[in-house]
Write a protein that binds this DNA or RNA. Structure first.
Lengths: 235, 235
DNA sequence: CAGTATCCTCGAGGATACTG
DNA sequence: CAGTATCCTCGAGGATACTG
């Protein structure tokens, strides 16, 4: 971001992380995004060239580092000490946004691929005894069928096509409701009671499921600073 | 700022306050800037039309309000509850910036008019028994002679021309040093010892002077994430 | 004092195609 | 898989002049 010409720590901070997308990129890496395509998946709408340019700016800004661990392996991005220290700033943004700008999802935000990338990023490694396949059948979003693979050791994977394994847990839901449940704006019980979400699978798996993720915790809304679409208010 | 298309509180917050200049405008109002020209003075380099547009965006975003108190009076800007709640975010920016992006001032940042507007914003109303005139004679900045008027009740005023009153306190300084002292990056004693700053006036006034302002408190630098100009490292 | 209206520029960033 | 190079567009925002 061009300089502000002020010897002020707020202005200086914004020069480094104030560019459009930059803090969202940091958010991705903060939650474990390491590879280029992985980071990109968490930022639908960004172009590859812009992501590439922003990553370079953040590297020059001392916020992250690009590393090629071994000859021939893919590059990985990691936060520096300064970058990790941005967690407080991201937290402040999340708190404020949750309180004042986080009403119901807008239709164009209902992208299941993004939701799953977000869940995948918050998967607790090793929380699962064996490979688990979660199947999502969704209504009212930009995609109706997605899968999430949880590996016991390595990590998790988003699949937009049938992964070839049978599902251990089938989640059928209104996309809007699934988003709200994930982001703590609607309880699972309430969603199930209202027929907006249903989970099928072995009882122990259904019971254990919530433990597999670190659910985002948000402050309660204190009124919309910005209004959402009126249609969004329903549910 | 255009939408990010993510149902994420961080992204939503950035949609409201992530535009260039927006958080600096909030900073100005947070520290008591109320009128258009007053806010503008804290943001050298912004154009009036851009400031006007950003103020409108922030108003639509629910962050501030524009009010005309009485028929015929000038409009004033005030933060809403959501806007006041941004102090945590601004604080996080200041903390991070102070730690990782706040090395020595760059030459183009040495604008005494801005520094005085900043001091003026942090003047403690009523800290002064009678009207006080501070005269600054500065070297190495974009301006060499400025005045700050402190009124016992109403507030403070920056003057770029002789205010017509005799000075109660004369501060002669290297502009760079004055900036660093104000922002806690150099102690007054050290600056005086090194001949970078001198204060002349009645002893009790010189002694009382620090109490007239709320001095910005910054975290210590933990290493520059971004490098300043090498020449800036000296003083 | 506090803006707004209009015109114009230039640079950020998308689209596309290409590479180690 | 992880980018980069090139070309082109369009819109953000500066300059200027004007107003209640």
């Amino acid at each position: 971001m061009p300089a502000y010409g002020q010897y002020c720590p707020v202005a200086r901070a914004l020069e480094v992380v104030g560019d459009r997308w930059s803090l969202l990129i940091v958010r991705e890496v903060l939650f474990g995004g390491r590879r280029f395509n992985e980071i990109e998946r968490g930022l639908p709408g960004i172009s590859r060239s812009l992501l590439s340019q922003r990553l370079q700016l953040l590297e020059r800004g001392g916020v992250l580092e690009r590393r090629v661990r071994e000859e021939g392996r893919v590059p990985e991005y990691a936060l520096t000490a300064a970058g990790r220290d941005l967690h407080g700033l991201i937290g402040a943004l999340r708190d404020w946004g949750g309180r004042w700008a986080f009403d119901d999802p807008r239709p164009e935000e209902l992208d299941p691929a993004w939701l799953l990338s977000s869940m995948s990023r918050r998967y607790r490694r090793g929380a699962v005894p064996r490979r688990m396949v979660l199947e999502f059948r969704l209504r009212g979003g930009r995609r109706s069928h997605v899968w999430l693979l949880l590996h016991p050791r390595s990590g998790s994977e988003v699949c937009l096509k049938h992964p070839g394994f049978e599902a251990d847990l089938l989640i059928t839901a209104e996309t809007r409701a699934l988003f709200k449940v994930w982001l703590g704006r609607l309880s699972r019980a309430e969603a199930e009671r209202r027929g907006l979400l249903r989970m099928e699978g072995a009882a122990d798996i259904r019971r254990a499921f919530p433990e597999w993720f670190e659910w985002p915790s948000l402050p309660p809304s204190r009124g919309a600073a910005v209004g959402g679409s009126p249609a969004a208010a329903r549910g």
